[in-house]
Amino acid sequence: MVETIRKPNGPAVAALLSAMIGILILGAINVGTEASSSFSTSMLEVGKVWIPNAQGIGPYSGKETIMVVGWLLSWVALHLALRRKDVNLKTPTAMFVIGLVLATLFVYTPFIDLLLGK
């Protein structure tokens, strides 16, 4: 009989939560750019740092950049924090779903208008 060593679920929690965090950051930044034109300009400057033809893509380039950076950094941080832990999955699963619902609302223009009182 082959015995397999059970891996703690912490790394899996880190992977899924960090994906949600990256996407939620994207949504939050999108609301920020809708609220402030100077913030929107700063997002374009972020995109220009590394994306070719970022000027043509506009502030979207910076939003993508921050999403990817936020996703990967939070993955590293959460992985280091949870890599040897077993976590009750109910709370992180709920956080994952709620985070993605919020992120979806944050990129939906009618909701942003409602949020900003436009």
């Binding site: 992977a15 994906a19 990256g22 996407i23 979207y60 993508e64 993605l100 979806t104 990129v107 939906y108």
Partner: peptide
Amino acid sequence: EIFFEFKEFIALFPFPIAVATTYI
């Protein structure tokens, strides 16, 4: 504003989730 702005962003959602689920 309602559909095509939304499309620009919702199209980014699958990538990090796909990477995370593939890793798992």
